[in-house]
């Protein structure tokens, strides 16, 4: 079986990466290869890294409120690169009311504060292509 590769990225300008690091560590312990790209990524950088690294999953974290703008942009750019099957998920401080629109835009699932990391691992295992 192929090893599952996940890009963990922080789009936008907030500097809070503790959550992303906790998730990266949990994914590592689940046996995934996690490509961690650090803070303040543009959607273009994320999409390019996702394509070059040929990841199965793009996992983004935003705590600044910029998710309605940045998450859909990443989805579009990743798809434009020809990555049709890549699972794209998001997390962070995201109001419940925003979630339907994000899903509509192609974010497969949104994980809000309090989510156990095992839920993210299970979701990836169940949905990765």
């Amino acid at each position: 079986m192929d090893k599952i590769r996940v890009l963990v990225a922080k789009p936008g300008l907030d500097g809070h990466d503790r959550g992303a690091k906790v998730v990266a560590r949990a994914l590592r312990d689940a046996g995934f290869e996690v490509i961690y790209t650090g803070l303040r990524q543009t959607p273009e950088q994320i999409a390019q890294a996702a394509a070059d690294e040929d990841v199965n999953v793009v996992a983004m974290s935003i705590l600044s409120g910029a998710h309605p703008h940045l998450f859909p942009k990443v989805v579009n750019l990743v798809r434009e690169k020809g990555m049709k099957d890549t699972l794209i998920i998001g997390g962070g401080v995201i109001p419940e009311g925003d979630i339907p629109a994000l899903k509509q835009a192609g974010i497969a699932e949104v994980f809000t504060p309090g989510t156990p990391t095992t839920a993210i691992v299970d979701f990836i295992k169940a949905n990765v292509k």
């Binding site: 590592r28 046996g31 273009e44 690294e53």
Partner: peptide, 30 residues
């Protein structure tokens, strides 16, 4: 990791502006 088989590939953190250069291709490997 010899225990979980997982890895954190973190070298790209230092190479983020290179990623947008069409003349550069970066690949991380465990």
């Amino acid at each position: 990791s010899p225990f979980s088989g997982g890895a954190i590939l973190g070298d790209r953190i230092r190479m983020n502006d290179l990623a947008m250069d069409e003349g550069v291709f970066i690949r991380s490997m465990g």
